[in-house]
Amino acid sequence: MAHPTPDPNDDGGSVYDGLLEHHEVAGDDSQWAFGTDFEDPLAGMDTTVPDDVDAAELATYCLLLGDDALVLSQRLAEWSSNAPDLEEDIALSNIALDLLGQARLLLARAAAADPAVVPALPEGSPAPVEDALAFFRDAADFRCTRFVEGPNGDFAQTIARLLLFATVRLAAFERLGDHADPVLAAIAAKGVKELTYHRDFAGRWFLTLAQGTEESRRRLLAGLAQVWPLYPELAEAYDVGPEVDVVLDQVFAVSGVERPEAGRRVGGEHHTEALSRLLAEMQSVARAHPLGVW
């Protein structure tokens, strides 16, 4: 059945009239799908860097923590609609969303601490600072560890990487809750709650796969062997100690999995080719349409 086109001059008006209701309020763009401005994730927070904190060092550290979360979030989001079942699809997407939120806060913190880290945007681009950092930096300027860069592999390999990542990041964030910069401390304290769920999720799946079928165990061990060589780089970057080994040894013991040989840190300071490929996909839309208009 065809519907008559709504006439805005009718008494009943058009269904879209409500959208214009607040147009007269200066600065209220809220009726538009995404507004016409972006919200600042740190709006109103005091982002002055404390006297005893080096602003450039703080920015670099926030970039490491933010980039790791951003890149692993992008990797985990690749599982959307591809996971073994709907529940794990949703779980991995939720974890990706938490990490994306952490990335956003951390990149915004880095930019506020040291504006020099923010790349120049194409003329007229409305992208906020955290988007400028995410979408307009080249691979060489990313601070993430190589541990998060590689492809997902199968579900078991994804779980093995997530267990190691969440365990290390949770330990680091617990400590960062006392950081001299109150903004980083607040971001970390909030992240602890989220990472606790991530670590439990990965730990349970690690155990399930290890004690499941011959095939699931074979795949888990293969996945662990795949991610382990770059693990020392992660642990070193986050400067975590024996508290992480205690947790990992607990998971390994319950799962009947032997802890892999203490690997040597794999040489090289640079990124893997996998990061360039990931960024090419993640940044393509923003770079093709830097004004956000098409």
Binding site: S30, D40, G44, L105, P182, I187
Partner: peptide, 21 residues
């Protein structure tokens, strides 16, 4: 912002992260 505009107030919204929700 919307509701406060309806009530006649110009509003600004700020974010707090401490203590975590």
């Amino acid at each position: 912002v919307h509701r406060l505009a309806d009530a006649g107030y110009a509003a600004r919204v700020e974010v707090s992260l401490t203590p975590a929700w």
